[in-house]
């Protein structure tokens, strides 16, 4: 049986990690490559780098970070943030990234999903969706530009469309749960996961180890992503996995 995956996410700006500098045992806690190697040693199953650089130079730096990371770690990693063309994808995949995350660019230009999948394979293309509950619709709406812009698109329908276009996975962030540490958004995750034949990575809201078993068992997620709780050592990957094992969830 497939193991459920635990995925730390690193926000990187101009080649430096911006959150979570709480690691005493690292020479340079701001170096994404060192942090990635640490998570590899701590048995993270995968990593996500989110590039939040605003400038062209910052983005160019990310390619170098990817190249160095690929030489250091022994688990798959995804790079997302500001990727808007097949050429951008190619540069990062060539540098050693395993998967590419696209969000706003995919909403603006859905053929980016099919073009990327045709060129590099479905397994490479992760469509990231930021979703927020819309009271009027009684379902979730897609937001872009880091959660600033409402799109008028329904999240479940957009996830299904992304799958049809060739996405290999959906990285689903609940804007309602994000930052609360009250747990993942179970209704959202479950609603999307039950409609899809591709894996769903739940994101936003992790605060305690039990939140992970909830989102795997109740939310039907295939993987769960968290940033702050791991970066600030509020819990370790090992603690999360021990809790999952005690509840009969298969982990690596």
């Amino acid at each position: 049986m497939l193991a459920k995956r635990i995925i730390p996410c690193l926000d990187v700006k101009d080649g430096r990690v911006v959150k979570g500098v709480n690691f005493v045992n690292l020479r340079d806690a701001g170096d994404p490559v060192e942090l990635a190697a640490l998570y590899d040693r701590e048995r993270a199953d995968e990593l996500v780098f989110l590039d939040i650089s605003a400038s062209y130079e910052g983005r160019a730096t990310m390619v170098e970070v990817v190249r160095r990371t690929a030489g250091e770690i022994t688990i798959p990693f995804t790079v997302g943030g500001g990727i808007a063309s097949v050429d951008d994808m190619k540069r990062l995949l060539r540098a050693g990234a395993d998967k590419i995350g696209i969000n706003t660019a995919a909403v603006k230009n859905p053929s980016l999903i099919s073009d990327g999948a045709a060129k590099f394979g479905c397994q490479c293309i992760v469509v990231a969706i930021d979703a927020k509950y819309n009271e009027q619709w009684r379902e979730w709406e897609v937001y872009t530009h880091g959660g600033r812009n409402a799109t008028g698109m329904r999240a479940i329908a957009w996830a299904q469309e992304a799958e049809r276009l060739g996405a290999g996975e959906i990285l689903l962030t609940s804007m309602d749960a994000d930052g609360t540490k009250d747990g993942f958004d179970i209704p959202l995750t479950r609603a999307v996961s039950e409609k899809l034949g591709i894996p769903v990575i739940a994101s936003g809201g992790a605060g305690k180890a039990e939140h992970f078993s909830d989102v795997f068992i109740e939310g039907k997620a295939d993987a769960a992503l968290a940033a702050t709780v791991f970066h600030y050592k509020e819990m370790t990957i090992e603690e999360v996995k021990n809790d999952l094992v005690s509840k009969g969830v298969e982990v690596r």
Binding site: L2, A3, R5, C122, G168
Partner: peptide, 9 residues
């Protein structure tokens, strides 16, 4: 789900 993707024993 196909592809078979992830960690397996």
């Amino acid at each position: 789900k196909v592809p078979h993707m992830g960690w397996n024993r």
